[in-house]
């Protein structure tokens, strides 16, 4: 299988069955399913960031741009009052996002480290202000999506986007596919070269590989999947807003990814679930939830050397 490491295997076998069954045990109302859905969607976004940062060593603080673009691209290219085909537009959005990433990547990949963080931030901020200042895209107040796409494939309809339960399972499946996709990528020859690029770009170049090209392809893939997550988020409630692209969104995703264990991929799911869970609990506990949240983050970073995934790794591997 793709999940070679023991800890990873454990996690996949516990998380996905649990996530499959969870809606059956939760109180039967729209909220829980919707909440789980948004966590699952965000985990996809975090995972694409996790690949970039943890596996390619490209730290970006502008990834939210693609997340937001996923939603806005749909509004830009789809007719307002006509149901379009979900799969076709998924394809369009991912391809357009990848093309945008290609152009942006050529610019940002000239830099590295902190400079790359800042230049990605700069480009994302420009994009944020473009939508936030715009008149035709609803400006700061955002826009509604009135007609959700139709999901039939070759005339067969599998599920209904308006049913929260259907949508949840679809997103969960997408998350699983994303995880498999990234595992395949990292396990392939391409992934191994990427690993070499991350550890020692100079030597990889000397071996005759075009480091820039490898980085660029990785950047495009991660951006396309981030846009896919953003597209799903926009469809969930039928609402897009520039705050999806704010640097705080990138920052939160980065926090989740580091919390989960940078580069472990499944840690992205772990980080997102734990962060969202803590957030949910604390905000129901007190108005000053920020204090608890902040303290918890500080405590975790002080105690866990490589995130939550690191802790699980330790536990599982030790029991061998």
């Amino acid at each position: 299988m793709f999940f070679l490491k023991k800890a990873e295997n454990w996690f996949v076998w516990i998380f996905f069955p649990l996530a499959l069954l969870l809606p059956l045990f939760l109180e039967q109302n729209e909220f829980y399913v919707n909440k789980l859905t948004s966590v699952v969607i965000f985990a996809m976004f975090v995972m694409s960031l996790d690949y970039l940062v943890g596996r390619c060593g490209m730290i970006t603080l502008g990834h939210s741009m693609f997340y937001g673009l996923g939603g806005y691209l749909f509004i830009m290219i789809a007719p307002e009052y006509e149901a379009v085909n979900f799969w076709v537009y998924t394809f369009y959005i991912c391809v357009i996002a990848a093309l945008i990433a290609l152009v942006v990547g050529v610019i940002v990949l000239r830099t590295s480290g902190i400079y790359m963080i800042m230049i990605t931030l700069a480009i994302a901020q420009m994009c944020f202000y473009f939508f936030s200042d715009s008149v035709e895209f609803g400006g700061n107040d955002g826009l509604f999506i009135f007609t959700k796409p139709d999901t039939s494939l070759f005339g067969l309809s599998f599920f209904n986007l308006d049913d929260p339960m259907h949508f949840y399972y679809f997103c969960l499946l997408s998350l699983f596919n994303c995880l498999v996709f990234w595992k395949v990528v990292t396990g392939s020859r391409f992934g191994r070269i990427m690993e070499a690029v991350k550890d020692n770009p100079a030597r990889t170049t000397a071996l005759g590989y075009n480091v820039f090209l490898f980085r660029l392809i990785s950047y495009c893939m991660a951006s396309a999947l981030a846009a896919y997550a953003g597209y799903l988020f926009a469809l969930q409630y039928g609402y897009v807003n520039p705050s999806m692209m704010s640097w705080q969104t990138s920052g939160t995703a980065l926090v989740m990814s580091i919390l989960g264990g940078m580069g472990s991929l499944y840690g992205a799911i772990l980080g997102t679930v734990v962060y969202e869970g803590l957030h949910y609990t604390f905000e129901h506990l007190t108005q000053h939830w920020l204090l608890l949240m902040g303290s918890m983050i500080i405590a975790m970073v002080m105690l866990f050397k490589s995130g939550l995934a690191g802790v699980i790794d330790n536990l599982v591997e030790r029991r061998k």
């Binding site: 730290i59 902190i114 980065l254 920020l290 983050i297 002080m302």
Partner: peptide
């Protein structure tokens, strides 16, 4: 660096 980022973001919250 990333652990420092996480720590200082926690500090912002606090």
């Amino acid at each position: 660096h990333l652990d420092q980022v996480l720590l200082t973001i926690g500090m912002i919250f606090v």
